[in-house]
Design a protein around this nucleic acid. Structure first.
Lengths: 225, 225
DNA sequence: CCATATTGTGTATAGTGTACACAAATATAG
DNA sequence: CTATATTTGTGTACACTATACACAATATGG
């Protein structure tokens, strides 16, 4: 058998959410190929690190991001996807709270920037395909797993959650029914604190109760919007 | 940077269904490591073939199976998963109609055999984990994608479909409601033919209409059990 | 204090899911 | 040939869930 000449990389589509806008974290490539073009952060896997570790390391190195939630998306292995030769990449989806750290470019990245998902620049490699797959996954998944909370502050007013869902699903949601449904799932704790931003009645803060969620999940109760 | 020493393989969990029994196709390994032990069929990816091609080739080589439906499952990359060194594997799920071909062992396999999924032998590598992931995927997916038909003959009596679902979901289904729901989805053509096996009233044959399914899917109508 | 903005809340109706039983058409045993 | 067993095919009533919808409460800003 001929020696295998396939290299393995990981890439991470990192989503963030702030004030009604979903963004994705991209880097500007410092080196060829695609030097000066935007790309999903990622890089080659080291011999003795797991795929998840590789993703977290590359993200830390290139962007300064510390990931909050990470899941494997899909493995892209088209023969011609990388001009340097055969590179198979395991893509991940990450969720972060952008306000909890500062991004900075380093190593392979000359710039790091948040792009709102409907104003994306041209991307390197097959990264557009990966990004679209990631968006589809995120949209599908928030309807049956409580991952939306990973994008919000730990304590959030209900309207934030509602705005997140309308944004992600791209369609209006009935405010009363949505609230009824989510609260009916019994995975949110209502706090005593209130918060007011600008004018309007102050909102109660809520917090996702992960422990209760796992308990309910074990009992077979499913999260569904 | 140190040279990357990671090898890439593909594996396929192939499911078949016959007469109320879900089986999975396993091979007995001819060579070390795990010589003489059962394993999921698979092997190393060639430099110039896509991942899907690699799966199909390995399956053909080792078992003689021609796959009917194939989807990527998950990529397993634990550092210690292969005693030969670092091997990352992209696992796939395949569905076949076992009665449409004859299996035979060759190349790396000394034996090929169908195992019913509740009587599995001890497996090599992390293949048990992969297999369980695949079973979970199959169970979940038949409830929201019409993949069950890939396991049945092209023309089938309704009771076959019903039995497949009760088997896969592991719980009884109300016969009338199930029929109502499936036929209401409007993706089955009722044929004029009848078939009788043993005693009992002969059954009408049905056929999955893929074209209509894709049409409906495009219109936003979703398959759901 | 008045206008504006945002949060918080209940009910009626339509639609969907679920439980349930018996007749029709064949094979088989006697 | 007849009786029995076996499998298919079908409808309705009820419970539950999803959906549509409007107004009062509490703040801010001029």
């Amino acid at each position: 058998m001929v020696e295998q000449k396939i290299r393995l990389s990981v890439d991470a589509v990192v989503f963030g959410y702030e004030e009604g806008v979903i963004s994705v974290l991209l880097i500007k490539r410092k080196y060829d190929p695609f030097k000066g073009k935007w790309a999903i952060p990622g890089g080659f896997v080291l011999n003795n690190e797991s795929l998840e570790t590789a993703v977290e390391r590359e993200l830390q190195e290139e962007t300064g991001v510390k990931i909050n939630y990470l899941e494997q998306l899909y493995t892209f292995g088209d023969v011609e996807r990388d001009p340097r030769g055969r590179v198979v990449t395991v893509a991940y989806v990450g969720l972060v709270r952008p306000n909890t750290f500062k991004i900075f470019a380093s190593t392979d990245a000359s710039q790091v920037q948040w792009f709102t998902i409907d104003k994306l620049p041209e991307l390197s490699f097959d990264h557009q395909k990966i990004l679209h797959t990631a968006i589809a996954r995120l949209q599908a998944k928030i309807t049956y797993e409580p991952i939306g909370f990973e994008l919000l502050d730990k304590k959030f007013p209900f309207s934030d959650l509602e705005k997140l869902y309308t944004t992600l699903l791209g369609r209006p949601i009935d405010r009363r029914n949505f609230r009824k449904k989510i609260l009916g799932l019994n995975v949110l704790d209502e706090l005593d604190k209130k918060v007011s931003k600008g004018s309007g009645r102050p909102a109660n803060l809520f917090q996702f109760n992960q422990k209760r969620y796992f308990q309910l999940k074990k009992e077979g109760i499913i999260f569904e919007i």
